[in-house]
């Protein structure tokens, strides 16, 4: 067994809104070994972004969490403010979607890449930070002259590269990427995915990659976890989950993006009736049952746990 960079046990996260508690994550467990990658897929409201933010304790004040997160052997929820600062950026760093909003518009790209190094004292001097930021730009495929560019002078793909350079500034062990390619064009998305794959080959960087597009994950992730209504409903090696999905929801998600050239999807788009449930108002029993094409009576009353569904694969469905 490889050393774990992350171990999550029965994590539950509840927001508190004016209209009552909103359980966004309802008991999620997984391990991530050093150098491994996990793809988290699901739709809006499934809890995937809440989960990502929780892994670095970036949730708003007043949010209730329970369960355990061990990051690089340390208990995340027991960390002091100083200990937490040290974990953010240096142990785990996060890349958000929408690169325009995540960058400061009045600072140069280079300045924003140097800042975490200076704050966390991973470099000894401003000069050293400059040298390192040039190396990082080279590593993410940006020309050095763009260190002096402001975010508005960069394209969407370049801004996303700046964010990745920033996340790598303090040489973290874990990179959390929350829909980093969603706003990008197809070709730019391919460039960014290739960059992330290359960064992982070069070092023992561990990766959590979050998206709603299952097919993207087969590129970047060794393991997949599909989330629905705050829980993992299927997990396993990414190719087997993608190709031999056993949970009806995973199957629908995989079919939503058709395989081009596959006659069965030609002029036959495939979708699910209804919408993903709202976290504050989950259906009884299996939360997927109102949309499930295979639902039976018993699905309305009991919520199934994850159970074996093939080699290394588990799914939370009574039909498995």
């Amino acid at each position: 067994m490889n050393q774990l960079v992350l171990s999550v046990k029965d994590l539950a996260i509840t927001y508190h809104s004016a209209s009552g508690p909103v359980p966004a994550v309802r008991g999620v467990s997984f391990d991530l070994a050093v150098g491994d990658s996990l793809g988290l897929a699901g739709e809006s409201g499934c809890g995937k972004s809440t989960l990502a933010n929780a892994l670095l304790r970036l949730l708003p004040d007043g949010t209730t969490t329970s369960g355990e997160v061990m990051i690089d052997g340390q208990d995340l929820f027991a960390l002091s403010p100083g200990g937490l600062r040290a974990v953010r950026w240096t142990t785990g760093a996060i890349v958000f979607q929408g690169a325009l909003h995540a960058l400061n518009p009045v600072q140069t790209a280079g300045r924003q890449v140097r800042e975490p190094m200076l704050i966390h004292h991973t470099v000894g001097s401003e000069d050293e930070a400059r040298v390192r930021s040039r190396q990082l730009f080279e590593r993410v495929g940006l020309p050095a002259n763009q260190l002096d560019a402001y975010p508005h002078q960069l394209s969407g793909g370049q801004r996303q590269r700046v964010l990745i350079a920033m996340a790598l500034a303090c040489d973290p062990q874990l990179l959390i990427a929350d829909e980093p390619t969603t706003a990008l064009d197809l070709m730019v998305q391919a460039q960014v995915l290739a960059l992330i794959a290359e960064l992982r080959r070069e070092s023992s960087l561990s990766l959590i990659f979050i998206t709603h597009d299952l097919s993207v994950l087969t590129y970047v992730a060794d393991h997949l976890a599909i989330m629905y209504a705050g829980k993992i409903v299927e997990e396993g090696p990414s190719l087997s989950v993608f190709q031999n999905a056993t949970h009806p929801y995973t199957r629908a998600l995989a079919a939503a993006f058709p395989t081009i050239g596959d006659p069965s999807s030609r002029l036959a788009p495939s979708g699910l009736a209804g919408d993903p449930p709202t976290p504050g108002a989950l259906p009884s029993g299996c939360p997927f049952h109102p949309r499930c094409p295979l639902a039976e009576d018993r699905c309305q009353t009991a919520e199934p746990d994850l159970r074996p569904a093939g080699p290394g694969q588990r799914a939370a469905c009574v039909l498995v």
Binding site: E43, S44, H212, D213, L214, Y249, A252, L253, A255, A256, F257, L267, P269, S270, G271, L272, A273, D275, P276, R291
Partner: peptide
Amino acid sequence: LDASIRGEILALML
């Protein structure tokens, strides 16, 4: 739109 809804809207267009 969410992935699972996408197919429904495309089917409607057809």
